[in-house]
Computed example of a mutant assay.
Amino acid sequence: MSEQKPGESTRMSDDEALEFAEQVFDLARQGNAELLDKLLEKGLNPDLRNHKGDTLLMLASYHGQQETVQVLLKHHADPEIRNDNGQSPIAGAAFKGDLEVVRLLVEGGASVEGASLDGRTALMMAAMFNRTAIVDYLIGQGADPRATDAKGVTPMAAALAMGAAETAEQLRQLVSA
Rank of each mutant, 00 (worst) to 15 (best):
H75Y: 09
N83H: 09
D78K: 06
A122L: 08
G97F: 09
T154G: 05
V69N: 03
N85R: 13
Q87N: 11
A158C: 06
T154V: 10
R131K: 15
G114Q: 05
H63E: 09
G142S: 11
A127S: 15
T121A: 01
R103C: 04
K52D: 15
T68F: 05
Q70D: 15
E34I: 10
K151V: 02
D54Y: 14
G64V: 01
A110M: 05
I139L: 14
A126Q: 11
T154D: 03
T121Q: 04
R120A: 13
V101N: 02
V106W: 01
K52A: 12
G114L: 08
E80S: 14
L40W: 03
L117P: 00
I90P: 10
G142R: 12
P145H: 04
A115M: 02
A33T: 09
D118C: 01
N45D: 15
M58V: 00
A115F: 03
A158R: 10
K74N: 11
N85L: 12
A77V: 13
D144I: 10
S111F: 02
D47V: 11
E107T: 07
L59I: 13
N83L: 10
A127C: 05
G92L: 14
A127F: 01
Q70E: 15
Y62Q: 13
R131I: 11
S111W: 06
G152L: 07
V71C: 06
A157M: 14
L123K: 05
Y137H: 08
R131Y: 09
D84S: 12
N50E: 13
L56W: 12
L59E: 10
K42Y: 06
A115E: 10
K42V: 00
V71W: 07
L44P: 00
G119T: 08
T68I: 07
A157C: 00
R131A: 04
K42C: 04
E34T: 13
A157G: 05
A147Q: 07
L40P: 08
A33G: 11
T154H: 05
R49K: 15
E107G: 02
G64I: 03
G114C: 07
D84Q: 12
E67L: 09
A157R: 13
A93C: 07
P46L: 07
L44S: 02
G43N: 05
P89G: 10
L35D: 02
D54R: 13
V102H: 02
I81M: 07
G53E: 04
I81T: 07
D78F: 08
L39M: 15
L48A: 09
D118V: 11
H76I: 00
R49A: 15
K52Y: 14
L35I: 02
G119R: 02
G92T: 00
G114R: 05
R49W: 00
P89F: 09
Q141S: 01
P145D: 07
A158K: 13
L57R: 09
I81A: 00
I81F: 03
R131C: 09
N83Y: 08
E100D: 14
D84H: 14
A157V: 12
K38E: 14
D149F: 04
V135T: 12
R146E: 13
M124V: 12
L105T: 12
K38W: 02
P89W: 04
G108C: 08
K96A: 15
K42N: 09
G109R: 04
D149P: 03
V71G: 00
G43L: 08
L48T: 12
A60G: 10
L39W: 02
L59G: 01
